[in-house]
Design a binder for these strands. Structure first.
Length: 422
RNA sequence: GGAGAGAUGGCAGAGUGGUCGAAUGCGGUAGUCUUGAAAACUAUUGAGGGUCACACCUCCGGGGGUUCGAAUCCCUCUCUCUCCGCCA
């Protein structure tokens, strides 16, 4: 949610920024500012009326104490009209607040100056390309065939016990999963992120905090009996740890990492690109989250991008980094770098990480603040990224590292798997 | 699942209708003292809205009600703790 103070002072900037998303927000922002003005006018009147009512009440108390019952009763009569007025004004205030909030919630984050304009994937800017975009030819197999041949992943068993999109990992497949999780966590810890183990289910308030609710309601698994949601990413519980907190300057930046299973209903995505590990209902991911002072968030973003790139290099996977264009940017993000690994057998790029700076868009909603030099509270900037999401990494590892005598495990991972070949 | 107790400022903990945004202690900040530090003493110290700045307004778990007036009384929801049962 954008800050109202930002819109008040920099409406023109917001409007021109949002154009990069293909959004003409001119009228919407005008409406918001109008509502904001009405709201403040109303509050002013309400406050004055409340002040008067408070004053009279105090007088009545005083009069009673002095035993001047008649005068007190006379004063009481005065308050009836005030009470009605207060009630009306309060109702109006509630309505104005509500509409203002609705309008603000519906507005996406403003892309930064450096974000390219554009409507679709095609307009994303390729920032960097590392490694060879190899083609395998002859007997090369896609990962779902390799996984089946080598008995690493059992899609059929997942269907049997749960449903499509819930694979069972077996033998070296399961060990590879565990190794990757440990590898990512250890690397993240080395980079200064503190490890957390969050709950895999969250309450409604947390869902609103990170913005999954209300708009993406249908994307989360919901347990109505207890009104809990299965997390679609560790970002939700981890960021919500800091909800409604005022952090000390010396504790910043906050850098957190967590492994979690992630659950996504993926309602509405059928057909192509869902084969094998490409799109699952349950998958494993290691996430990194950062909270920084506003002036430090861009440096943090760069550091996180570099960190994720290093992970991919250690796994010896060819990848590219995209700077997303305005039209492809997530609702809450002001700038996002996507990481894609090359899947040699499918001959396509697979997204494995998305590193974003949300600035105050999330923290405004969650009221995550810090106390500045001026002793006042200020909103922090929040950032997050995957480091990394497992299934597509596994897919790329299997496909890219397939050799005549099996799958080669990258050296960096061997200490975690305990084997060099599958 | 059954029975009971409770939810107040960063923490602990008073407060049962007006003088309460809230005693007191701890913690934090600033100062006095000191070569420096500690101790002691003094002052200060919640959040949000509003305003150029004041004024002023809101908030004592959430929502609703009674009353001229609610942290305090009533209803309701949520959560926490203790005991019993069940159980990894």
């Amino acid at each position: 949610m954008l800050e109202i103070t930002y819109l008040r002072s920099q409406a023109a900037e917001a409007i021109s920024g949002l154009k990069k998303r293909g959004l003409d927000a001119n009228q919407r922002i005008k409406d918001i500012l109008k509502l904001d003005e009405l709201r403040r006018e109303n509050q002013n009147e309400l406050d004055q009326t409340l002040a008067e009512s408070n004053r009279i009440s105090k007088e009545i108390g005083q009069l009673f104490k002095e035993g001047k019952r008649e005068e007190a009763d006379a004063a009481k009569a005065q308050t009836a009209a005030l009470k009605n007025k207060i009630k009306d004004l309060q109702q109006e205030q509630e309505q104005l607040k509500h509409s203002l909030e609705q309008d603000l919630l519906a507005l996406p984050n403003v892309p930064l100056d450096t974000v390219p304009a554009g409507n679709s994937e095609a307009d994303n800017e390729i920032v960097q390309k590392v490694g060879e975009q190899m083609t395998l030819g002859h007997g090369a197999k896609p990962h779902w065939e390799l996984a089946e041949d080598l008995k690493l992943i059992r899609f059929d068993l997942g269907v049997k016990i749960t449903g499509a999109g819930f694979p069972v990992y077996q033998g070296k497949g399961a060990r590879l999963q565990r190794a990757l999780i440990n590898f990512f966590l250890e690397e993240n810890i080395k980079a200064g992120f503190e490890e957390y183990q969050p709950p895999l289910m969250v309450n409604e308030t947390s869902g609103y905090g990170t913005g999954q609710l209300p708009d993406k309601e249908g994307q989360m698994y919901h347990m109505p009996e207890d009104n809990l949601y299965a997390i679609p990413t560790a970002e939700v519980p981890i960021t919500n740890i800091f909800r409604d907190e005022i952090l000390n300057s010396e504790d910043l930046p906050i850098k957190a990492t967590a492994y979690s299973a992630c659950f996504r209903r993926e309602a509405g995505s059928y057909g192509k690109d869902v084969r094998g590990l490409n799109r699952l209902h349950q998958f494993d991911k290691v996430e990194i989250v950062a909270l920084t002072k506003p002036e430090d968030s861009m440096a943090m973003l760069d550091a996180m991008v570099e960190h994720v790139a290093a992970l991919l290099q250690k796994l010896e996977l060819p990848y590219r980094i995209l700077k997303l264009c305005g039209g492809d940017l997530g609702f809450t993000s002001s700038i996002t770098y996507d990481f894609e690994v090359w899947s040699a057998a499918q001959e396509r790029w697979l997204e494995v990480s998305s590193v974003s700076n949300f600035q105050t868009f999330q923290t405004n909603r969650m009221k995550i603040r810090y106390r500045g030099e001026d002793k006042k509270t200020h909103l922090l900037h929040s950032l997050n990224g995957s480091a990394l999401a497992l299934p597509r990494i596994v897919a790329a590892l299997l496909e890219n590292h397939q050799e005549e005598d099996g799958i080669r495990i990258p050296e960096a991972l061997q200490g975690f798997t305990g084997f060099e070949k599958i």
